[in-house]
Structures are given as structure tokens and as C-alpha cells.
């Protein structure tokens, strides 16, 4: 099926801040296709988590819509939204902060299902064992508490909790960033298996491009609250078009001394403040290819083609 499971249109969202207004999302359009893994990358503060929270309806945008299977979630009240929430679940970066330290793993996993009326108390034990097995933890883990687990194991618990309600869309916000490489590999394998087995569609947020490339079908690159490039994962990494994506790709450390770029192109300057995004293309202040026009006009994301799409006047 080609119709997207999730559509984000013209999303704008901001936060009041001491001196002014943080423009976290400045017009985001994005589609998640059925069964795909969409990687979302970009620098710290560019709005990735805010986008995730807006999709989850945890933050209300002041403009734009989020459609799940065609239903406009923003138009629903909390009561109507509730039954839909189970289709949309999230895994957070910090496996320490996202699990209640005073609840046993069994209770953590049963709670959302009981709350949604999807489970009777007497079935909880069996269902919990099933979920733990799905994420590669022993059934005995149900009686333990979060502090008794390592970071990687807690992230497995968090994934099991997200899966408990049988979601169709999973949003993973930096699920492996806090983990060591060898543990990271286990979690990436697990997510990949689960997506295939449970037929999930997933938005995978990370700042490590090599991880994102590995797991994603398509990649969206964000810069200061907007998507600047979108395309097939291999194309975005191997033949990036937007100058920001190029810089990002050039910055990936290559774990092989024999394949080092002789003079790596490093981006100069820092990202501009989201309190006062520059006029024109937000990247123009750091862009080696900027034209006069880039200072005044904002490039739109071009219509998708087989090359993907890019928002740049001089790609």
C-alpha cells in the first residue's frame, strides 16, 4: 500500500522564552509510509523531539495538521484521542528517566494495557512474559525494578512498553544515543526485527548518521525547524544534495584509518538561534554555496522525484 499511514502538514510550533519566542518547527511537511522506517536527523535543537511530541499530540502546534490513517488528530478532543493513542507509541532517549523507578517491570508493562481496557488482570502475567520475550528479556524480569537493569536492558523494557498496546506507528527518539556501541547494536537489531515482524512503521530519530543510514528506508534531514532534504537513505548519504546534508555527511567519522579524507570539509560557525531564525534560507550563514537570493528568500522543499527532494536554491 502506498498511502501514508501518517501525514504531517505545515506544522508550526513555538515556545515562549525569556526574551522572545523559540520557533521550534517552522513549517514541517512529512509523510510516513506504511511499513517504512523513516530516519530523522539534524543538529541538536533543530526540532526533532518537538516534531515527535507534536505527532504524539503531546505538544499542540499552532498551525498545521497531523493525520493518522487520514484522521486529523489535532481536531479531536482528549476523549476521542484516547483510543487512537494506542496506535501511536514512543520510545525515548533516556531509558533511566522514562521508566518509573517505583514500579516493577511487570506493572510498567501491564499498566497501559489495563488503562486501555485491553487486558484483564489475570491475563497480565502471560502477556508480560510474551512482551519480555519479544524484546529478548527473561520472563523473570517482570518482578524486578528498573534500577536492577543495565541501560540496554532498560531500553528493551521501554520498547516492550511501547509495543504493549500493539501500535502501528512507533516513534523512537534517539533510542540508542545513550548506549555503548555494542549495546547499541543489540537495540538496533531488535528494532529492525520488530518492525519487520509486527509490520510497524517507524520514525527513528538519531544524530548518528551511520546508525540512521543502517536502519532507515528513507531519511529526512532537519535544519532549524524545517526539513531541508528527504530521500532514499542510501541516496541521501551517498549523494547528498543539500549543502547542509553534505556537511553532515562529511562530518561522519570514518572508522578506518585507510579511508580518511585528506582535508575534511568542516562546517564553520554555529547554527543560528531559533529565537531569531535568519531571513531567507536558515543555512545561508554557514553555507559555502550561498547565493544573494538565499539571504532573502526561503527555499521550499521541492516536489518529490526519484532523486528525493531538497530545499535549496543552489544544490
Amino acid at each position: 500500500m502506498t498511502d501514508p499511514i501518517l501525514q504531517v502538514r505545515g506544522l508550526r510550533l513555538g515556545f515562549p522564552s525569556g526574551k522572545g519566542h523559540v520557533q521550534a518547527l517552522r513549517g514541517v511537511d512529512l509523510e510516513l509510509r506504511r511499513g517504512e522506517v523513516l530516519g530523522l536527523v539534524g543538529e541538536s535543537g533543530c526540532g526533532k523531539s518537538t516534531l515527535a511530541r507534536a505527532v504524539m499530540q503531546l505538544a499542540r502546534p499552532y498551525e498545521g495538521t497531523v493525520l493518522l490513517e487520514g484522521t486529523d488528530l489535532g481536531a479531536l478532543g482528549e476523549r476521542q484521542l484516547r483510543p487512537l493513542r494506542r496506535h501511536l507509541q514512543m520510545v525515548f532517549q533516556d531509558p533511566y528517566a522514562s521508566l518509573n523507578p517505583r514500579m516493577s517491570i511487570g506493572d510498567i508493562l501491564a499498566e497501559p494495557q489495563l488503562a486501555h481496557g485491553l487486558l484483564r488482570r489475570e491475563e497480565a502475567g502471560a502477556r508480560c512474559a510474551e512482551l519480555l520475550d519479544m524484546v529478548g528479556l527473561p520472563a523473570g524480569a517482570a518482578h524486578k525494578y528498573p534500577h536492577e537493569f543495565s541501560g540496554g536492558q532498560r531500553q528493551r523494557v521501554a520498547i516492550a512498553r511501547a509495543l504493549a498496546l500493539g501500535p502501528s506507528v512507533l516513534i523512537a527518539d534517539e533510542p540508542v544515543s545513550a548506549l555503548d556501541v555494542s549495546i547499541q547494536a543489540q537495540i538496533i537489531n531488535l528494532l529492525q526485527e520488530l518492525v519487520a515482524r509486527l509490520n510497524l512503521s517507524m520514525i527513528f530519530i538519531a544524530h548518528d548518521l551511520s546508525v540512521v543510514k543502517h536502519i532507515s528506508d528513507r531519511i529526512a534531514v532537519m535544519y532549524l525547524g524545517r526539513i531541508v532534504e528527504l530521500g532514499e537513505a542510501s541516496a541521501v548519504i551517498e549523494t547528498p544534495r543539500h549543502p547542509y546534508t553534505r556537511a553532515l555527511v562529511a562530518s561522519i567519522p570514518v572508522p578506518d584509518p585507510a579511508r580518511q579524507a585528506p582535508a575534511p570539509e568542516v562546517l564553520s560557525g554555529d547554527p543560528p538561534s531559533p529565537l531569531a531564525p535568519p531571513r531567507g534560507c536558515a543555512f545561508h550563514s554557514r553555507c559555502p554555496r550561498a547565493l544573494e537570493r538565499c539571504r532573502t528568500e526561503m527555499p521550499e522543499l521541492e516536489a518529490a522525484s526519484d532523486k528525493g527532494s531538497c530545499a535549496c536554491f543552489n544544490p
Binding site: V181, S182, Q184, Q186, I188, N189, S210, A233, S234, P255
Partner: peptide
């Protein structure tokens, strides 16, 4: 094992060594 667990030492989508 450490070197093998890095995604860039694998083909895309291939199961990572852990």
C-alpha cells in the same frame, strides 16, 4: 567485537554483530 558492532562496517540493513 567492538569494531564489528559499528553499523558502518556492515552492509545496510544487515544484522549488526553484537
Amino acid at each position: 567485537a567492538l569494531l564489528r558492532s559499528i553499523p558502518s562496517t556492515h552492509r545496510k540493513g544487515e544484522r549488526l554483530q553484537t
